[in-house]
């Protein structure tokens, strides 16, 4: 399967928010490079700016400094070109639409409302056959997330951005969806960035795991993950998998320690 999608190059990005009377510096000197068709996972402590970084790449927010380039286009141009698919921790489905019309929403928004064949294919791909006419309130949390993932994929975007899409789910459903995510990515080959809290999840699905420092966030460690694909659940029991998880875990702890030190230096 040919790799598709846009490469992502983020260089020296900073973003500061006004909060109450003061300011919060979410990102400083944030860099990441994802090759076309690559799968990167962003991991870091709570509040380190992972979601901010993803929103910047999605063109939903603009950086105060630095550049984000995707094959010569800015995130805003990518967004306006309707080449991005997003799914958040909150599935954000329209409660008044059914499963299939929620997925079709993305097609309607990009002006391809008659392209219904792909909707049916995706419903099958995410395993929701038989629920086409159900409304979000009738679905479980995991099923809603599948709808959100299907919606993010239906326009065949060049870039797929996932912000902890499985964060609110139980471990079993989560593993199942990770398997499906991997399958979908293998089949479609879209450049994908996944923000997550879970180290095993990141190591299981991604080509590369980027570890972020606490706020102001920046990438402090890269871990290439070169397990063969398709990865199966047996991998979860393998020693080399655990070794990788340990390594990522260690750099995450180091990154947290670093900031404690930084803050000590500041005072």
């Amino acid at each position: 399967m040919a790799r598709r999608g846009a490469p992502v190059d983020v260089v020296g990005v900073g973003r500061t928010f006004a909060l109450g009377g003061g300011e919060v510096e979410a990102l400083r000197g944030f860099e990441m490079h994802v090759p076309a068709g690559g799968f990167s996972a962003l991991i870091g402590p709570s509040g380190c700016g992972k979601s901010t970084a993803l929103r910047l790449v999605a063109g939903l927010d603009a950086p105060d400094e630095g550049t984000i380039d995707m094959d010569g286009a800015s995130p805003d141009q990518m967004r306006r070109g309707q080449r991005i698919g997003v799914a958040f921790q909150d599935p954000s489905l329209l409660p008044w639409r059914t499963v299939s019309t929620n997925i079709r929403l993305a097609l309607e928004l990009v002006g391809r409302r008659h392209d219904t064949g792909s909707v049916d294919d995706l419903i099958e791909l995410v395993g929701l056959q038989g629920f086409e006419k159900a409304r979000p309130a009738q679905l479980s949390g995991g099923m809603r997330q599948r709808v959100a993932i299907a919606r993010s994929l239906v326009t065949e975007p060049d870039l797929l951005l996932l912000d902890e899409p499985f964060g609110a789910l139980d471990a079993l459903t989560r593993q199942q969806l990770n398997d499906e995510l991997q399958r979908i990515w293998t089949a479609r080959g879209t450049t994908t960035i996944l923000v997550t809290h879970s180290i095993p999840e990141a190591v299981y699905v991604a080509d590369e795991v980027l570890v972020m420092s606490p706020r102001p966030g920046r990438v402090v460690a890269h871990h290439a993950i070169d397990f063969e694909r398709p990865r199966t659940r047996e991998l979860l029991l393998a020693d080399e998998f655990h070794a990788k998880v340990e390594a990522v875990s260690a750099s995450l702890h180091r990154s947290e320690g670093q900031v404690v030190q930084l803050e000590a230096d500041d005072s």
């Binding site: 939903l60 967004r79 309707q82 954000s92 928004l109």
Partner: peptide
């Protein structure tokens, strides 16, 4: 919900949408 607005924005949906 902000999430719904973000989804619409991510497809560059216009006012009518």
């Amino acid at each position: 919900p902000v999430g719904i607005l973000d989804v619409l924005k991510s497809y560059d949906a216009g006012s009518a949408a």
